[in-house]
Structure formats: structure tokens, C-alpha cells
Write a protein that binds this DNA or RNA. Structure first.
Lengths: 274, 274
DNA sequence: GAGTGGTCTAGACCACTGT
DNA sequence: CAGTGGTCTAGACCACTCC
């Protein structure tokens, strides 16, 4: 048993599966295969390219890893549509700070996410879950408290109403003894809280001085892929947001998980004048 | 021909390849398989797990996509070491601005990348290439100039001296008529320029007001994977840096490609006091 | 030359989707 | 039920690395 002999049209050192992925990639780029369109069945492609089915699968797998196609078991393989983009800007922080002291009716109208995305509250679905957890070594170091200190953990998922999967996962942590001064802050049924976290902190007499965001990109763990509905070959962006108050104390830490292919982040750095 | 019967130890709905990837993943997490260590040969694993070699390959492929192992043709499969992290902070911009007016001997000692990484000039290798290109529609829109306007394009690659692949690729664009006032700025043999772009602009009487950085993450194209030496299953971060001068004019645009798994970005947003 | 992963074949049966 | 992708077998030969 050996492979089919190389043919003249193969080009220099082209594998069979690369020949297939290159050809299909070109068809997608040219629009010959339009977004949302179904590719021919693997058995058809095998006949067309004169190779075995596993070889077709290898070729299509390359495109899948590049995020160009999406396989759906029992239905077929489809050219991916570019999902709706979500922009996240660091100007949201100052915007939210300005809002934090406004009256409730103004705060209620729009949240920071709507500000970023330009959508209304109705376009988004929002789920919150509160609980209390002991600080891990990592979080204890961020807050500068002993390991095991009680933290209020709040989990948020935000999605477009019309889409199945959320476009972000947020885990926000606050020291429990800090927030328990206002019992309303412990009630998840008060979410979404008009004015967001900065207003919540304002009810405790806390003013933020600066926000530090650290992030990196990596392939999703199996759990993250499941949760965010990520096809193979899409990265996640992990963002840790640390909020400092005017006494230089860390008052909130948020871990945000974002799908890398649909999130665009914009950061503006203002420079001091000469 | 059919698969081996399911055994009691398989757990609920465990595929063979998932059983293998789960087991190996756990061994890596526990340190039983240490970073840099070689996994048993695929034929060995096939014997050990009592499956065929392609099934082992499928299982190991999962770990490869997660960035946990790296295959090396002819040598074996190895547990990936976490590569040296590179931190990129937005404080580099203010730092570079402060330096831009310093005398040359101070500017020469350290660049912004060394500032970020904490390394010395000797630890890094640096390559620059200059040419002139007509503005694409995209770049013309950024600069607010007609499409086709001449731009000076500068390509930079920075690497650790001891590593084979660069940890970033930078393509920087400047309007040609802006920089031609100082002929030295057109000479690639003057790189690395002490004090960086902000000093170069300073020689033209330009002061920066703010820098806007936009980025997203996606799987690498085949070319990027090749260039940055990325194994399968590592994302790239694409960053576009746009510099505005004090007259609100765009004076530089840089496109930066970074390996997502070894770059950590830190952005600080200072908030106005109440 | 021995050992390794890379490509490929030609099938089999299973699981899921839609008619 | 037909059609699709998902899993898996049991091999073959090729290409690369290292001794």
C-alpha cells in the first residue's frame, strides 16, 4: 500500500492534505465558498481530490485550526461567519467613574458594556451568581490579605440575546468585610446594579484611583471552549483587572475570559505634555 | 474490524483518545512528566494504552492544540517549557517620552523593550529593514491621507540572543514627507536609534499627545507560525499602535505581531479624582 | 542504521442531524 | 432512513535526527 503517485499539478513539495487545505482556503478567501456555506461532504471531497477520507479530514482540520471552517456533527462542515465583534475600551473606566455619582435613573439607563458595544440593555442577557470563597494564594497576594480571607465572588455572563453563548465570563472578587457594610451588595438579586461596581464601591465611600489590566492569550481549556461555545482553533484572552482606591489599596480584582476572535480591545494612553 | 470493547476503567463516555489525552494531561499537571521531558514514542504509547498508533496521535494532538506538548519530527514529543515571558506595559510610552529629550548617552543605554523586559541591550538581537510603500486604504484612513501616499515602512524583529525565533514583529509606518526633513531617519543603518521613535519624531519638532492601541487574538496564519516559530495551538496577538501628536494628527502607525503564549500585556488607566 | 514522528490508505462501525 | 462527521484499526512508506 502506498500513496498515489505525485502528479504534475501538485506543485513543489505539496502534501496531499496541504494541497486540499490550500485549495479550500483560497476558495474561502475568494468568496467562492461564502460564509455560512456548507462544504461538500468529506466523501465527496475525497473523490474530488482523489485521496482517502482521512486525508481530507486532515486537510479540513487545518482550516478548522485556523478558525476558517466549523464542523457540525451530522450536518456538515461550514465556512465560519465572523461573529459580532465586541469592543472593550479602557475609556469605560473613566466613563463608569463619572457615572458612579449620578442619580439612579441616569445610571440605570446604560451600563459600561452597553457603552462599549453601543447596544441597549435589551440586546443583552446577563446572569449573575454570588458566593463567598476563601482567598487563594494568588488573590490573597493581589489584595494584600492573608490566604483564606473571605472574599465575595461574583460571576457574570453576558451574551447577545440572540446568541447561544456568552461573549464574556467575569469573576469579580471583593473582600467580604469591605462590602458587608452595605448588605445590598451581597444580594445577587439586585443585579444588574445600576452604575456597576464603581457605584457599589461609592456606596462604601470608596473612590478609585487607577485600574491595572493584565492580559494574555492562550488556547482555551476544554471547559472554556464548552462554556463560550468556541470552535477548535480560537484563542481566549484572559484579562485580570485590579482596581486601586485613592489610598492605594486593592479593592476589587476581576478575572475576565474573552473569546479572542470576537473581542477587540482598545487602550488609550495619554502622555504628559512637555 | 472494530474497536476494542469498552473496559470498566474507561469512565463514562470516554473515547480512547480522550482517555489518553486526559491521562497524559494529568501526568503533565502533576509533574510526573516534567517540562522538557520526552514522552514515550507513539508506538510505545499505543502498546501501553492498547490502541492503534493513529489513535495515540489523535490523543497527543489534543495536547498539542492546547499548547502542552510539542512534537519534533525525528526526535520525539516533549512537554513544552513555558517560554520566557515578555511583558509589554503602556507605561513604556510615557517612559519613552521622558527619554526623548535626554542627551544621547542616556538614551543609548536602554530602549523601551529593555525597559519592559528588564534585560540589557546585549541580551537582545535586533534587525531592521526600511523601505517606502504606497499607503493601503487601511493605512491611508488611519493617517487621513490619500490612498497611495508614500509611507516609510520600517520592519523590526526582536529576539532573545539565545533563542532562534523573534518574540515580536513590528511594521511601523511614517508619512514619508514628514520624516524626510531629517535624512538620518531614512537610514536603516542608524538602527537601533537611541531613544526610539519618540526621539526620532522629536528631531522633527513633533511631540506626542497620546497613543491608542487596538488588539485582538487569533490563530496564526501559516506564515506567522513559521516566522515566530509557533507550535500548533498558540495564538498570536495583533496590536495596532496609533500615535497622535499635540495637534491631533496621526504621525505613526505600528502593527505588532506577538506570540500570545509568551507575551503579557499590562495597561494602567489612571482615573480623574472627584 | 535505528528510532522517531509525518503522511497516507481503505476500509469498519458509531453518533448525530434531518427527512 | 439517508447523509454526515467522529472514532478507530492495522498496516505502509517517507523524512528527519542522532549516533
Amino acid at each position: 500500500m502506498f500513496g498515489r503517485p505525485r502528479q504534475d499539478g501538485d506543485g513543489p513539495m505539496a502534501n496531499q492534505y496541504e494541497r486540499i487545505s490550500t485549495d479550500l482556503r483560497q476558495q474561502i478567501a475568494s468568496g467562492e465558498l461564502a460564509p455560512g456555506e456548507k462544504l461538500p461532504a468529506e466523501s465527496q471531497l475525497a473523490k474530488h481530490y482523489d485521496v482517502s477520507v482521512p486525508t481530507v479530514r486532515q486537510g479540513v482540520g487545518v482550516l478548522q485550526a485556523e478558525g476558517l471552517v466549523e464542523k457540525q456533527h451530522g450536518r456538515g462542515t461550514f465556512v465560519r461567519r465572523q461573529p459580532k465583534k465586541v469592543t472593550r475600551s479602557n475609556e469605560r473606566h473613566q466613563w463608569e467613574k463619572d457615572r458612579a455619582r449620578q442619580p439612579e435613573d441616569i445610571r440605570k439607563s446604560t451600563g459600561a458594556t452597553e457603552h462599549d458595544t453601543g447596544l441597549t440593555v435589551d440586546d443583552l442577557t446577563f446572569r449573575a451568581k454570588y458566593d463567598t470563597v476563601p482567598a487563594s494564594a494568588d488573590l490573597a497576594a493581589e489584595f494584600g490579605v492573608p490566604e483564606g480571607t473571605d472574599l465575595l465572588r461574583r460571576e457574570y455572563r453576558t451574551a447577545y440575546s440572540q446568541e447561544r453563548h456568552p461573549f464574556n465570563l467575569v469573576r469579580s472578587y471583593l473582600p467580604l468585610d469591605l462590602v458587608s457594610a452595605n448588605p445590598d451588595l451581597l444580594r445577587e438579586d439586585r443585579e444588574p446594579w445600576p452604575g456597576g461596581t464603581q457605584n457599589q464601591l461609592h456606596t462604601l465611600g470608596i473612590e478609585l484611583d487607577r485600574i491595572v489590566e493584565t492580559f494574555r492569550a492562550r488556547p482555551p481549556t476544554p471547559e472554556e471552549a464548552e462554556e463560550l461555545g468556541l470552535p477548535v482553533g480560537v484563542a481566549v484572552v484572559l484579562l485580570r483587572k485590579t482596581s486601586y482606591d485613592t489610598t492605594d489599596r486593592v479593592v476589587e480584582v476581576s478575572d475576565v475570559t474573552l473569546p479572542g476572535d470576537r473581542t477587540e480591545m482598545v487602550y488609550t494612553t495619554k502622555l504628559e505634555r512637555w
